[in-house]
Design a protein around this nucleic acid. Structure first.
Lengths: 112, 112
DNA sequence: GTGCCTCGGTACCCTGTGGTAACCGAGAAC
DNA sequence: GTTCTCGGTTACCACAGGGTACCGAGGCAC
């Protein structure tokens, strides 16, 4: 079990509830904090802040502050972030094709 | 934000600490409970049980009990599970190539 | 000048999740 | 008869994840 240790690490990076959603939101260029908050349904201000910080720390995205009033902070994927997004694409495709099947499996399991 | 809702769901399935490790362990055929427990370093008996149940519920793997003493229970990927493993392969590859870079980014960030 | 708005973020508190440890049941080995 | 194995279940407990409330500084209306 050496590779799987990396699997565990990669989940530490993208495995939380919001990271992939944020990465996905940034695929078409930089976005501002409030823009992300509005677009990602259900995320709290705190969780957006925390997740963005983590992703910045991991070098997935960059945080750019323009020191004006009201504050203007924008987030943008790094090249590493771009490759990450590409790597997660198959998983997203998988989810689109298989989620109905999984919902069915769940329903069947719960009905036993 | 409709696709990302699916991203959230897929994380509900494979996004926990252990699910991907288990899926990976099963790639070469069925494994027994204790075999998995020994192979996946650090997993507790409880978490192995819980995670296996969840994956079974989602139709990712099957649980087969041979009613003998001592008990013999084996787990095997379903075809859905196989496709999931294939879909996660790029992500694992990404992690192998980028984790050093990410560790470096983290260290740099923390040293500021 | 005094409310009130926006943007981005922090402080605090609570809940749920995951981990540890103990126990179980039935046969088999010694 | 004691102890081991396999595959769990249950009770308990700490910690992290996540929600809510608040903040600060400028702009703008009145």
């Amino acid at each position: 079990m050496q590779d799987p240790c990396q699997a565990r690490e990669v989940l530490g990076i993208v495995g939380d509830k919001w990271a992939l959603l944020i990465v996905r939101m940034l695929k078409d260029g930089p976005r501002r904090f409030t823009e992300l908050k509005r677009a990602i349904d259900g995320i709290s201000q705190r969780m957006l802040t925390v997740t963005l910080r983590d992703l910045e720390r991991d070098g997935i995205l960059t945080r750019t502050v323009r020191n004006v009033m009201p504050p203007h902070v924008s987030y943008e994927l790094t090249t590493t972030g771009q490759t990450l997004r590409e790597a997660t694409a198959p998983l997203l495709e998988w989810s689109i094709t298989h989620l109905p099947h999984i919902d069915a499996a769940r329903a069947a399991y719960d009905n036993r």
